[in-house]
Amino acid sequence: MRIGLDMMGGDYAPGEAVKGVKLFFDTVTSDAHLVLIGDETALKPLLEEAQLDTSRYTVVHSSQVIGMNEHPTKALKEKQQSSIAIGFYLLQHKKIDAFISAGNTGAMMVGTFYSIKSIEGVQRPTIATMVPREAGGYGLLLDVGLNADCKPENLVQFGILGSLYAKHILGTENPKVGLLNIGEEEGKGNLLAQATYPLLKDEPRINFAGNVEGRDVFTDKADVIVCEGFTGNVVLKMAESFHEVAVKRGIKDDYIDRFDFEYYGGTPVLGVSEPVIIGHGISGQRAFMNMIVVAQKMLESKLLDKIKESFIAK
């Protein structure tokens, strides 16, 4: 497998990206070949210093970088030699099997939707986040910002996509799917939640566990929690802020430490036909390593084939 990595994306690139590659090579057993996309002049001394096995990676030169504050569509159009544009070109033309970047999120989303097709039957691709559970392990919350407004059918598909990811990447057999709501009883919530509940209940491809409330998010009541992206993003940012406050106050706790985004790396775009993983702009070496690990798991498990089969079967 060939995994493409944008070496210029993120506030601490390319230094932390190179460190992440080294950490991956040193700690993960893998036959993955990494395609490092970035400015050769900037990368060469860092790669030499890291003393990486040159047989395990290839450098593809990019002469431009899309800044974090640039307009996504305009930047992709005008910067065809940027690391993000080249990454999507390679992915589109089957030169790499997955693409990872911690660069401009908007440019990554535009590149995904214009370069990579959605899987047939998927109405709206989604992004998810890992949710650390107090009893151990991780759940999944989606959508967390890509789709601020949704129809009931979209949330049902998020449940299917999340279930497949939880089963094949997180190793959760028959994952329970919950609908984020303001009460446990059927009939609670706004119009979207009320219309979604019976659809989830009747969907044979998921194991529906009913409504879950905010207090249930970090428990094992549901393995996959679905909501529209507006609510999901609020929950995500609130959880991240708890970790930030704990760090600032010098609080050390094993559970709170697991809210650090570097533990899980980046966010896969679920519902598109090729693996695309988007990282946080402040990603460090551990986040880069974990994004590579996620890409490897997606490829090894043939997750996208399973998603395609699930939607074709319907």
Rank of each mutant, 00 (worst) to 15 (best):
A193E: 04
G250V: 12
V245D: 00
L200F: 13
E240K: 00
M238E: 05
V224E: 11
V217E: 00
L199M: 15
E244R: 07
D202C: 07
E186Q: 13
P198G: 10
D223E: 12
G232D: 14
F230Y: 13
T196F: 10
N190I: 02
K201F: 01
K248S: 07
A246C: 01
T196E: 11
N190W: 00
H243V: 03
G189Q: 08
F230I: 00
L200N: 09
E213L: 08
Y197S: 04
K248C: 01
P204E: 15
Q194M: 12
F242W: 08
E185M: 06
S241C: 04
L191E: 15
E228L: 09
F230W: 11
F242P: 00
L200I: 14
L191N: 11
D202K: 10
V217C: 10
N233C: 04
G232M: 06
V217N: 04
T196P: 05
L200V: 11
F218N: 05
G214N: 12
Y197V: 02
S241W: 05
I206T: 15
V226L: 02
K248N: 05
F242M: 14
L236K: 00
N233E: 08
L199T: 12
R205I: 03
A193S: 13
G214A: 05
K188R: 10
E203A: 09
G210S: 09
V212H: 06
T219H: 03
G232Q: 09
T196N: 02
I225T: 12
T196K: 01
I225M: 15
C227M: 14
V235Y: 12
G250P: 09
N233P: 02
E213N: 04
D223K: 03
A195N: 12
L192I: 15
V226C: 09
E228N: 14
E203M: 11
K248R: 15
G210L: 04
K221G: 02
A209G: 11
S241D: 01
A193V: 14
L236P: 06
C227W: 03
M238K: 00
R215Y: 12
L199W: 07
T196I: 11
N211Y: 01
V224Q: 13
L199N: 02
K237H: 06
T196D: 06
R205N: 13
L200Y: 11
A195D: 14
M238Y: 10
G189M: 06
A195M: 02
G229N: 13
V247L: 03
V234I: 15
E186M: 06
D223H: 13
K201R: 09
